[in-house]
Structure formats: C-alpha cells, structure tokens
C-alpha cells in the first residue's frame, strides 16, 4: 500500500468537495466563472494524477508485446514442416507417377 498515493488523491478529492459545496448563486458573476474554472482545474489535476499512475506501466506493455511476437517464430517452424510435407508429397507423387506409368508398359 502506498500511503502517499492515498493521501495525495484524497487531498485532491477534498478540494473538489470544498469547491462543490460552495453555493454558486450567492457569488457575483465573475466569481461564479472563477469557481467553474477552479472546478475544471481541480478535475484536470485529479485525472492527471490517476493517469500518471497508469502510464508508468507503458514499458511493461511494450516488453510483453515483444514476447508475444517472438512466439511467431515457433509457428513459422510448423508452417515450414507443412511446406516440407508438401515437397515430400511432390517427390512421392513423382515416384508413383514414374512407377505407375512403368507398370502400364508391362
């Protein structure tokens, strides 16, 4: 558990609650606009805080992607075997053709 994460996040949420509890109707027009600006700023800070803790994992996504991509080589081996099997088929086909035609001459 990271106490600092909870503390920092809770402080931001407290700011949001304090601003939300302000009665906008008693404020002069300019102060109403400032209140909305402050709420927008606090909201952006809250989201930036959460994003920071998500995006520090970017490297783990990239590293894992490479691991999946490496497994493609194993599938290439299987495809290669299938190609060789086809070639074997061609070779056997050639032999059989030769043998069968020869048999008909007998």
């Amino acid at each position: 558990m990271s106490l600092s994460y909870q503390d920092a996040y809770n402080r931001l949420l407290d700011s949001r609650e304090k601003l939300a509890s302000q009665d906008i109707t008693v404020l002069p027009r300019q102060e109403q606009i400032r209140l909305l600006q402050a709420q927008q700023a606090v909201y952006s800070e809250i989201q930036a805080f959460l994003i920071d803790h998500m995006t520090d994992r970017k490297d783990r996504f990239s590293i894992l992607t490479e691991k999946f991509r490496h497994s493609r080589r194993d599938f290439q081996d299987i495809r290669q075997w299938a190609v060789e099997a086809s070639k074997t088929g061609e070779m056997v086909g050639g032999l059989l053709k030769g043998v069968s035609l020869a048999l008909t001459l007998l």
């Binding site: 099997a85 086809s86 088929g89 061609e90 086909g93 059989l96």
Partner: peptide, 11 residues
C-alpha cells in the same frame, strides 16, 4: 491433383 492428395497424406 495427385500431388495435393499425396501432400495431405504426408501431412
């Protein structure tokens, strides 16, 4: 056709 059949056999 023959080769295709025999390829399947070897697979």
């Amino acid at each position: 056709e023959l080769i295709t059949s025999l390829s399947g056999f070897s697979k």
